[in-house]
Nucleic acid binder design. Structure first.
Lengths: 192, 192
DNA sequence: CGTATGTTTGATTCGCTTCAAGTTGCGTGG
DNA sequence: CCACGCAACTTGAAGCGAATCAAACATACG
Protein backbone atom coordinates (compact mmCIF):
# COMPACT_ATOMS: atom_id res chain seq x y z
CA UNK A 1 0.00 0.00 0.00
CA UNK A 2 2.24 2.68 -1.34
CA UNK A 3 0.09 5.51 -2.48
CA UNK A 4 -3.24 6.87 -1.43
CA UNK A 5 -5.33 9.81 -2.51
CA UNK A 6 -8.87 10.98 -2.14
CA UNK A 7 -8.83 12.36 -5.62
CA UNK A 8 -9.37 15.99 -4.86
CA UNK A 9 -6.33 17.88 -6.01
CA UNK A 10 -4.30 15.47 -8.04
CA UNK A 11 -4.50 13.54 -11.24
CA UNK A 12 -2.03 10.87 -12.27
CA UNK A 13 -0.91 8.41 -14.86
CA UNK A 14 0.02 4.89 -13.84
CA UNK A 15 3.54 4.00 -14.96
CA UNK A 16 3.88 0.70 -13.22
CA UNK A 17 1.89 -1.46 -10.84
CA UNK A 18 -1.79 -1.96 -10.11
CA UNK A 19 -4.08 0.26 -8.07
CA UNK A 20 -7.64 -0.12 -6.89
CA UNK A 21 -10.35 2.50 -6.84
CA UNK A 22 -12.87 1.96 -4.09
CA UNK A 23 -15.94 3.43 -2.47
CA UNK A 24 -17.32 2.36 0.87
CA UNK A 25 -20.29 2.86 3.13
CA UNK A 26 -20.06 4.35 6.61
CA UNK A 27 -20.35 0.89 8.12
CA UNK A 28 -17.28 -0.33 6.29
CA UNK A 29 -18.61 -2.29 3.35
CA UNK A 30 -16.27 -1.81 0.44
CA UNK A 31 -16.72 -2.05 -3.31
CA UNK A 32 -13.88 -1.86 -5.80
CA UNK A 33 -15.22 0.35 -8.60
CA UNK A 34 -12.17 0.35 -10.81
CA UNK A 35 -8.69 -1.05 -11.25
CA UNK A 36 -5.90 1.01 -12.75
CA UNK A 37 -3.14 -0.69 -14.71
CA UNK A 38 -0.05 0.81 -16.34
CA UNK A 39 -0.91 3.63 -18.77
CA UNK A 40 -4.29 4.17 -17.11
CA UNK A 41 -5.35 7.60 -15.98
CA UNK A 42 -6.50 8.32 -12.43
CA UNK A 43 -8.36 11.27 -11.02
CA UNK A 44 -11.03 13.80 -11.82
CA UNK A 45 -9.90 16.73 -13.90
CA UNK A 46 -11.95 19.84 -14.60
CA UNK A 47 -13.31 20.66 -11.20
CA UNK A 48 -15.21 17.46 -10.70
CA UNK A 49 -14.87 15.47 -7.54
CA UNK A 50 -15.63 11.91 -6.63
CA UNK A 51 -15.64 10.14 -3.31
CA UNK A 52 -13.41 7.31 -4.53
CA UNK A 53 -10.25 6.20 -2.78
CA UNK A 54 -7.16 5.06 -4.63
CA UNK A 55 -4.87 2.45 -3.08
CA UNK A 56 -1.90 0.69 -4.64
CA UNK A 57 -2.16 -3.10 -4.66
CA UNK A 58 1.42 -3.67 -5.72
CA UNK A 59 4.50 -1.52 -5.68
CA UNK A 60 3.52 1.19 -8.07
CA UNK A 61 4.98 4.16 -9.84
CA UNK A 62 2.63 6.91 -10.87
CA UNK A 63 3.18 10.20 -12.61
CA UNK A 64 1.32 12.80 -10.57
CA UNK A 65 0.15 16.25 -11.67
CA UNK A 66 -1.50 19.05 -9.78
CA UNK A 67 -5.00 19.17 -11.17
CA UNK A 68 -4.88 22.84 -12.02
CA UNK A 69 -1.73 22.41 -14.09
CA UNK A 70 -3.18 19.41 -15.85
CA UNK A 71 -6.46 21.14 -16.64
CA UNK A 72 -4.69 24.08 -18.21
CA UNK A 73 -2.35 21.87 -20.19
CA UNK A 74 -5.19 19.66 -21.40
CA UNK A 75 -7.26 22.58 -22.60
CA UNK A 76 -4.32 23.75 -24.67
CA UNK A 77 -3.78 20.32 -26.21
CA UNK A 78 -6.90 18.94 -27.87
CA UNK A 79 -5.11 15.71 -28.86
CA UNK A 80 -4.56 14.96 -25.19
CA UNK A 81 -8.19 15.66 -24.42
CA UNK A 82 -9.22 13.47 -27.29
CA UNK A 83 -7.09 10.59 -26.03
CA UNK A 84 -8.47 11.07 -22.54
CA UNK A 85 -12.01 11.06 -23.88
CA UNK A 86 -11.43 7.80 -25.73
CA UNK A 87 -10.00 6.18 -22.62
CA UNK A 88 -12.82 7.45 -20.46
CA UNK A 89 -15.41 6.11 -22.87
CA UNK A 90 -13.68 2.73 -22.87
CA UNK A 91 -13.55 2.75 -19.09
CA UNK A 92 -17.24 3.59 -18.96
CA UNK A 93 -18.00 0.57 -21.13
CA UNK A 94 -15.92 -1.72 -18.95
CA UNK A 95 -17.63 -0.33 -15.87
CA UNK A 96 -21.04 -0.92 -17.39
CA UNK A 97 -20.36 -4.54 -18.20
CA UNK A 98 -19.16 -4.92 -14.63
CA UNK A 99 -22.56 -3.58 -13.50
CA UNK A 100 -24.19 -6.49 -15.32
CA UNK A 101 -21.93 -8.84 -13.35
CA UNK A 102 -22.68 -7.17 -10.00
CA UNK A 103 -26.41 -6.92 -10.52
CA UNK A 104 -27.33 -10.10 -12.30
CA UNK A 105 -24.66 -12.78 -12.12
CA UNK A 106 -24.40 -15.60 -9.57
CA UNK A 107 -21.26 -16.27 -7.54
CA UNK A 108 -19.93 -19.00 -9.88
CA UNK A 109 -20.56 -16.76 -12.88
CA UNK A 110 -18.85 -13.82 -11.21
CA UNK A 111 -15.76 -15.87 -10.41
CA UNK A 112 -15.55 -17.36 -13.91
CA UNK A 113 -15.96 -13.95 -15.53
CA UNK A 114 -13.34 -12.50 -13.24
CA UNK A 115 -10.79 -15.21 -14.01
CA UNK A 116 -11.29 -14.87 -17.77
CA UNK A 117 -10.95 -11.11 -17.43
CA UNK A 118 -7.67 -11.48 -15.54
CA UNK A 119 -6.43 -14.04 -18.01
CA UNK A 120 -7.03 -11.62 -20.88
CA UNK A 121 -5.44 -8.77 -18.99
CA UNK A 122 -2.25 -10.71 -18.33
CA UNK A 123 -1.97 -12.22 -21.80
CA UNK A 124 1.18 -12.06 -23.89
CA UNK A 125 1.36 -9.56 -26.66
CA UNK A 126 3.82 -12.01 -28.27
CA UNK A 127 4.64 -11.73 -31.96
CA UNK A 128 1.44 -10.17 -33.14
CA UNK A 129 0.86 -6.76 -31.59
CA UNK A 130 -2.83 -6.47 -32.28
CA UNK A 131 -3.82 -9.79 -30.80
CA UNK A 132 -3.12 -10.60 -27.18
CA UNK A 133 -3.25 -14.29 -26.33
CA UNK A 134 -4.96 -14.86 -22.96
CA UNK A 135 -2.61 -16.07 -20.25
CA UNK A 136 -2.86 -19.67 -19.06
CA UNK A 137 -0.95 -18.95 -15.87
CA UNK A 138 -0.91 -15.62 -14.07
CA UNK A 139 -0.48 -13.96 -10.69
CA UNK A 140 -3.42 -12.09 -9.23
CA UNK A 141 -2.74 -8.58 -7.96
CA UNK A 142 -5.60 -9.16 -5.50
CA UNK A 143 -6.03 -10.87 -2.16
CA UNK A 144 -9.16 -12.96 -1.64
CA UNK A 145 -10.75 -10.04 0.19
CA UNK A 146 -10.05 -7.77 -2.76
CA UNK A 147 -11.53 -10.26 -5.21
CA UNK A 148 -14.60 -10.30 -2.97
CA UNK A 149 -14.75 -6.48 -2.99
CA UNK A 150 -14.46 -6.50 -6.76
CA UNK A 151 -17.25 -9.02 -7.29
CA UNK A 152 -19.64 -8.00 -4.54
CA UNK A 153 -19.16 -11.24 -2.61
CA UNK A 154 -17.68 -12.30 0.72
CA UNK A 155 -14.21 -13.71 1.11
CA UNK A 156 -15.63 -17.10 2.10
CA UNK A 157 -17.73 -17.39 -1.05
CA UNK A 158 -14.74 -16.46 -3.20
CA UNK A 159 -12.64 -19.10 -1.50
CA UNK A 160 -15.30 -21.78 -1.90
CA UNK A 161 -15.79 -21.03 -5.58
CA UNK A 162 -12.03 -21.16 -6.18
CA UNK A 163 -11.68 -24.56 -4.53
CA UNK A 164 -14.77 -25.80 -6.37
CA UNK A 165 -13.20 -24.88 -9.71
CA UNK A 166 -9.95 -26.51 -8.62
CA UNK A 167 -11.73 -29.72 -7.62
CA UNK A 168 -13.52 -29.78 -10.97
CA UNK A 169 -10.18 -29.46 -12.76
CA UNK A 170 -11.14 -26.17 -14.38
CA UNK A 171 -8.31 -24.22 -12.78
CA UNK A 172 -5.14 -24.91 -10.84
CA UNK A 173 -3.98 -22.92 -7.83
CA UNK A 174 -0.18 -23.30 -7.58
CA UNK A 175 -0.05 -20.68 -4.82
CA UNK A 176 -2.40 -18.24 -3.16
CA UNK A 177 -1.99 -15.54 -5.75
CA UNK A 178 -1.43 -17.72 -8.80
CA UNK A 179 -4.10 -19.12 -11.06
CA UNK A 180 -3.72 -21.57 -13.93
CA UNK A 181 -6.51 -21.94 -16.46
CA UNK A 182 -6.82 -25.67 -17.24
CA UNK A 183 -10.18 -25.73 -19.01
CA UNK A 184 -10.99 -22.44 -20.65
CA UNK A 185 -14.13 -23.60 -22.48
CA UNK A 186 -15.59 -24.79 -19.18
CA UNK A 187 -14.79 -21.44 -17.61
CA UNK A 188 -16.37 -19.57 -20.50
CA UNK A 189 -19.48 -21.71 -20.18
CA UNK A 190 -19.67 -20.91 -16.48
CA UNK A 191 -19.22 -17.17 -17.06
CA UNK A 192 -22.84 -16.87 -18.25
CA UNK B 1 -40.83 2.32 -26.91
CA UNK B 2 -40.13 4.66 -29.76
CA UNK B 3 -36.52 4.32 -30.57
CA UNK B 4 -34.03 1.51 -30.42
CA UNK B 5 -30.40 1.20 -31.41
CA UNK B 6 -27.55 -1.16 -30.81
CA UNK B 7 -25.12 1.68 -30.72
CA UNK B 8 -23.04 0.81 -33.72
CA UNK B 9 -23.39 3.56 -36.27
CA UNK B 10 -25.20 6.35 -34.55
CA UNK B 11 -24.71 8.81 -31.77
CA UNK B 12 -27.43 11.02 -30.39
CA UNK B 13 -28.41 13.74 -28.00
CA UNK B 14 -31.56 13.40 -25.94
CA UNK B 15 -33.89 16.34 -26.47
CA UNK B 16 -36.85 15.09 -24.56
CA UNK B 17 -37.92 11.95 -22.72
CA UNK B 18 -36.09 9.20 -20.86
CA UNK B 19 -34.21 6.24 -22.31
CA UNK B 20 -32.64 3.19 -20.76
CA UNK B 21 -29.31 1.61 -21.64
CA UNK B 22 -29.25 -2.11 -20.98
CA UNK B 23 -27.11 -5.19 -21.31
CA UNK B 24 -28.39 -8.71 -20.98
CA UNK B 25 -27.17 -12.29 -20.78
CA UNK B 26 -28.07 -14.97 -23.31
CA UNK B 27 -30.61 -16.40 -20.90
CA UNK B 28 -32.49 -13.14 -20.70
CA UNK B 29 -31.39 -11.57 -17.45
CA UNK B 30 -31.30 -7.83 -17.93
CA UNK B 31 -29.40 -5.05 -16.21
CA UNK B 32 -30.01 -1.37 -16.81
CA UNK B 33 -26.52 0.14 -17.00
CA UNK B 34 -27.51 3.72 -17.63
CA UNK B 35 -30.43 6.09 -17.99
CA UNK B 36 -30.39 8.98 -20.41
CA UNK B 37 -32.31 12.15 -19.63
CA UNK B 38 -32.73 15.30 -21.72
CA UNK B 39 -29.38 16.83 -22.73
CA UNK B 40 -27.58 13.52 -22.18
CA UNK B 41 -25.41 12.05 -24.86
CA UNK B 42 -25.88 8.51 -26.17
CA UNK B 43 -23.56 6.34 -28.19
CA UNK B 44 -19.94 5.47 -28.72
CA UNK B 45 -18.02 7.86 -30.88
CA UNK B 46 -14.51 7.29 -32.21
CA UNK B 47 -14.72 3.73 -33.45
CA UNK B 48 -15.55 2.17 -30.14
CA UNK B 49 -18.41 -0.25 -29.79
CA UNK B 50 -20.42 -1.48 -26.86
CA UNK B 51 -22.98 -4.22 -26.59
CA UNK B 52 -25.56 -1.98 -24.91
CA UNK B 53 -29.12 -1.56 -26.10
CA UNK B 54 -30.98 1.74 -25.98
CA UNK B 55 -34.74 1.77 -25.49
CA UNK B 56 -37.01 4.74 -24.88
CA UNK B 57 -39.06 4.53 -21.69
CA UNK B 58 -41.28 7.47 -22.52
CA UNK B 59 -42.10 9.27 -25.72
CA UNK B 60 -38.74 10.69 -26.61
CA UNK B 61 -37.15 13.04 -29.08
CA UNK B 62 -33.49 12.55 -29.84
CA UNK B 63 -31.13 14.34 -32.15
CA UNK B 64 -29.32 11.63 -34.10
CA UNK B 65 -26.01 11.92 -35.97
CA UNK B 66 -24.15 9.46 -38.13
CA UNK B 67 -21.12 8.54 -36.10
CA UNK B 68 -18.65 9.39 -38.85
CA UNK B 69 -20.03 12.88 -39.23
CA UNK B 70 -20.02 13.42 -35.51
CA UNK B 71 -16.45 12.19 -35.11
CA UNK B 72 -15.17 14.55 -37.76
CA UNK B 73 -17.10 17.47 -36.35
CA UNK B 74 -15.95 16.76 -32.81
CA UNK B 75 -12.31 16.57 -33.78
CA UNK B 76 -12.60 19.99 -35.36
CA UNK B 77 -14.25 21.50 -32.31
CA UNK B 78 -12.21 20.99 -29.14
CA UNK B 79 -14.81 22.79 -27.00
CA UNK B 80 -17.33 20.12 -27.95
CA UNK B 81 -14.88 17.37 -27.11
CA UNK B 82 -14.16 19.05 -23.81
CA UNK B 83 -17.82 19.23 -22.93
CA UNK B 84 -18.26 15.61 -23.92
CA UNK B 85 -15.29 14.62 -21.78
CA UNK B 86 -16.74 16.40 -18.75
CA UNK B 87 -20.07 14.68 -19.22
CA UNK B 88 -18.46 11.31 -19.69
CA UNK B 89 -16.39 11.72 -16.53
CA UNK B 90 -19.52 12.68 -14.61
CA UNK B 91 -21.36 9.69 -16.03
CA UNK B 92 -18.48 7.43 -15.02
CA UNK B 93 -18.71 8.71 -11.46
CA UNK B 94 -22.45 8.11 -11.34
CA UNK B 95 -21.94 4.64 -12.76
CA UNK B 96 -19.31 3.85 -10.15
CA UNK B 97 -21.49 4.87 -7.24
CA UNK B 98 -24.17 2.66 -8.75
CA UNK B 99 -21.67 -0.22 -8.64
CA UNK B 100 -21.44 0.24 -4.89
CA UNK B 101 -25.21 -0.07 -4.74
CA UNK B 102 -25.32 -3.19 -6.90
CA UNK B 103 -22.45 -4.95 -5.20
CA UNK B 104 -22.88 -4.10 -1.56
CA UNK B 105 -26.29 -2.71 -0.68
CA UNK B 106 -29.29 -4.66 0.58
CA UNK B 107 -32.72 -4.50 -1.06
CA UNK B 108 -34.11 -1.87 1.36
CA UNK B 109 -30.98 0.25 0.88
CA UNK B 110 -31.18 -0.07 -2.88
CA UNK B 111 -34.81 1.06 -2.94
CA UNK B 112 -34.17 3.98 -0.61
CA UNK B 113 -31.15 5.12 -2.60
CA UNK B 114 -33.13 4.82 -5.82
CA UNK B 115 -36.03 6.89 -4.54
CA UNK B 116 -33.75 9.65 -3.25
CA UNK B 117 -31.93 9.64 -6.58
CA UNK B 118 -35.20 10.00 -8.48
CA UNK B 119 -36.37 12.70 -6.12
CA UNK B 120 -33.22 14.71 -6.78
CA UNK B 121 -33.49 14.15 -10.51
CA UNK B 122 -37.05 15.46 -10.66
CA UNK B 123 -36.50 18.39 -8.35
CA UNK B 124 -37.51 21.95 -9.17
CA UNK B 125 -34.88 24.35 -10.34
CA UNK B 126 -37.16 27.05 -8.91
CA UNK B 127 -35.80 30.51 -8.21
CA UNK B 128 -32.21 29.62 -7.56
CA UNK B 129 -30.56 28.08 -10.63
CA UNK B 130 -27.62 26.47 -8.87
CA UNK B 131 -29.63 24.62 -6.26
CA UNK B 132 -32.28 22.12 -7.19
CA UNK B 133 -34.75 21.29 -4.47
CA UNK B 134 -35.52 17.55 -4.40
CA UNK B 135 -39.04 16.70 -5.47
CA UNK B 136 -41.55 15.53 -2.85
CA UNK B 137 -43.89 14.06 -5.46
CA UNK B 138 -42.82 12.71 -8.81
CA UNK B 139 -43.70 10.23 -11.55
CA UNK B 140 -41.33 7.35 -12.19
CA UNK B 141 -40.34 6.78 -15.81
CA UNK B 142 -39.90 3.11 -14.87
CA UNK B 143 -42.16 0.12 -14.46
CA UNK B 144 -41.57 -2.18 -11.48
CA UNK B 145 -39.64 -4.54 -13.75
CA UNK B 146 -37.41 -1.69 -14.87
CA UNK B 147 -36.75 -0.61 -11.31
CA UNK B 148 -35.77 -4.23 -10.63
CA UNK B 149 -33.43 -4.24 -13.64
CA UNK B 150 -31.89 -1.02 -12.43
CA UNK B 151 -31.27 -2.26 -8.90
CA UNK B 152 -30.37 -5.87 -9.59
CA UNK B 153 -33.47 -7.22 -7.84
CA UNK B 154 -36.63 -9.07 -8.84
CA UNK B 155 -39.92 -7.38 -9.49
CA UNK B 156 -41.43 -9.06 -6.41
CA UNK B 157 -38.75 -7.74 -4.09
CA UNK B 158 -39.19 -4.22 -5.48
CA UNK B 159 -42.93 -4.41 -4.92
CA UNK B 160 -42.54 -5.70 -1.37
CA UNK B 161 -40.06 -2.97 -0.45
CA UNK B 162 -42.35 -0.30 -1.89
CA UNK B 163 -45.33 -1.48 0.12
CA UNK B 164 -43.18 -1.81 3.23
CA UNK B 165 -42.11 1.84 2.91
CA UNK B 166 -45.72 2.81 2.32
CA UNK B 167 -46.90 0.91 5.41
CA UNK B 168 -44.17 2.58 7.47
CA UNK B 169 -45.37 5.98 6.30
CA UNK B 170 -42.05 6.80 4.64
CA UNK B 171 -43.54 7.19 1.17
CA UNK B 172 -46.94 7.46 -0.43
CA UNK B 173 -47.95 5.71 -3.65
CA UNK B 174 -50.81 7.73 -5.21
CA UNK B 175 -50.67 5.64 -8.36
CA UNK B 176 -48.48 2.92 -9.83
CA UNK B 177 -45.95 5.30 -11.30
CA UNK B 178 -46.14 8.07 -8.73
CA UNK B 179 -44.14 8.34 -5.53
CA UNK B 180 -44.49 10.83 -2.72
CA UNK B 181 -41.69 11.26 -0.22
CA UNK B 182 -43.28 11.64 3.22
CA UNK B 183 -40.28 11.13 5.46
CA UNK B 184 -37.04 12.03 3.74
CA UNK B 185 -34.78 11.67 6.80
CA UNK B 186 -36.02 8.11 7.28
CA UNK B 187 -35.36 7.37 3.64
CA UNK B 188 -31.84 8.83 3.89
CA UNK B 189 -31.18 6.71 6.95
CA UNK B 190 -32.31 3.60 5.09
CA UNK B 191 -30.16 4.40 2.06
CA UNK B 192 -27.01 3.29 3.90
C1' DC C 1 9.64 -21.92 17.05
C1' DG C 2 5.54 -18.62 18.05
C1' DT C 3 2.77 -15.12 16.63
C1' DA C 4 0.16 -12.48 13.06
C1' DT C 5 -2.29 -12.47 8.86
C1' DG C 6 -4.64 -14.50 5.22
C1' DT C 7 -7.19 -18.49 3.68
C1' DT C 8 -9.97 -22.60 3.81
C1' DT C 9 -13.65 -25.28 5.57
C1' DG C 10 -17.93 -26.37 8.08
C1' DA C 11 -22.58 -25.39 10.22
C1' DT C 12 -26.20 -22.38 10.43
C1' DT C 13 -29.02 -18.37 9.27
C1' DC C 14 -31.22 -15.10 6.54
C1' DG C 15 -32.55 -12.37 2.54
C1' DC C 16 -33.80 -12.63 -1.71
C1' DT C 17 -35.59 -15.41 -5.43
C1' DT C 18 -38.75 -18.54 -7.22
C1' DC C 19 -43.11 -20.29 -7.89
C1' DA C 20 -47.93 -19.62 -7.68
C1' DA C 21 -52.09 -17.29 -7.03
C1' DG C 22 -54.65 -13.17 -6.48
C1' DT C 23 -55.60 -8.24 -7.41
C1' DT C 24 -55.75 -3.80 -9.62
C1' DG C 25 -56.14 -0.71 -13.36
C1' DC C 26 -57.34 0.18 -17.92
C1' DG C 27 -58.58 0.09 -22.77
C1' DT C 28 -62.08 -2.36 -25.88
C1' DG C 29 -66.09 -3.75 -27.58
C1' DG C 30 -70.64 -5.56 -26.75
C1' DC D 1 -72.24 1.65 -19.00
C1' DC D 2 -70.65 -2.53 -17.75
C1' DA D 3 -68.47 -7.06 -18.95
C1' DC D 4 -64.37 -8.78 -20.71
C1' DG D 5 -59.46 -9.46 -21.35
C1' DC D 6 -54.96 -8.28 -20.63
C1' DA D 7 -50.84 -6.57 -18.58
C1' DA D 8 -48.81 -4.74 -14.52
C1' DC D 9 -48.58 -5.22 -9.94
C1' DT D 10 -49.18 -7.31 -5.27
C1' DT D 11 -49.15 -10.93 -1.99
C1' DG D 12 -48.07 -15.46 0.03
C1' DA D 13 -45.45 -19.84 0.75
C1' DA D 14 -41.40 -22.45 -0.03
C1' DG D 15 -36.60 -23.06 -1.48
C1' DC D 16 -32.02 -21.85 -2.17
C1' DG D 17 -27.72 -19.30 -2.54
C1' DA D 18 -24.77 -16.49 -0.37
C1' DA D 19 -23.83 -14.32 4.16
C1' DT D 20 -22.66 -15.01 8.75
C1' DC D 21 -20.60 -17.19 12.52
C1' DA D 22 -17.00 -20.09 14.11
C1' DA D 23 -12.93 -22.93 13.81
C1' DA D 24 -9.10 -25.08 11.78
C1' DC D 25 -5.37 -24.48 8.57
C1' DA D 26 -1.51 -22.39 5.97
C1' DT D 27 2.12 -19.00 5.19
C1' DA D 28 5.20 -15.41 6.19
C1' DC D 29 8.17 -13.34 9.43
C1' DG D 30 10.20 -11.83 13.73
Amino acid sequence: MIWEDDDSLLVANVIDGVLKLTTSTEDGREQIVGVAYPSDFIGRPFGQTSRATVVALTDARVCVFARNDFDRFAREHPELEHKLLERTLAELDRTRSWMMLLGRKTAPEKIATFLLDMSDRYGDVSACTTFRAPAKLFTLPFSRQQVADLLGLTIETVSRQFTKLKQDGVIGLPSRREVEILNRPALSALAG
